[in-house]
């Protein structure tokens, strides 16, 4: 399967891509994390200090998020 096929499923919608590695001790490493995937990870491990501030709720409650560019 090519990259293009991976990112454009047959229904024409663009797929979102995240990659994670689950370690034997339960830690989860990830990159290219989307909001939806971060939500899922936070439900699996609500105490993860890397994931917690990146959930949609946490980002939305960060009032600086909507500031215009300096």
């Amino acid at each position: 399967m090519t990259d293009t096929e991976l990112k454009q499923p047959p229904d024409g919608k663009r797929a979102l891509v995240s990659e994670i590695l689950i370690l034997p001790d339960g830690r989860v490493l990830g990159h290219s994390l989307t909001r939806a995937f971060t939500q899922l990870l936070s439900e699996l491990n609500p105490d993860d200090p890397q994931i917690r501030p990146r959930t949609p709720e946490a980002v939305a409650s960060d009032t600086t998020a909507q500031e215009p560019a300096a």
Binding site: K7, L33, A65
Partner: peptide, 15 residues
């Protein structure tokens, strides 16, 4: 190879 909204970067930059 990728164009999407992400939240893995520094907190001051995300989403």
């Amino acid at each position: 190879h990728l164009a999407q909204v992400e939240v893995a970067d520094e907190l001051e930059l995300i989403p």
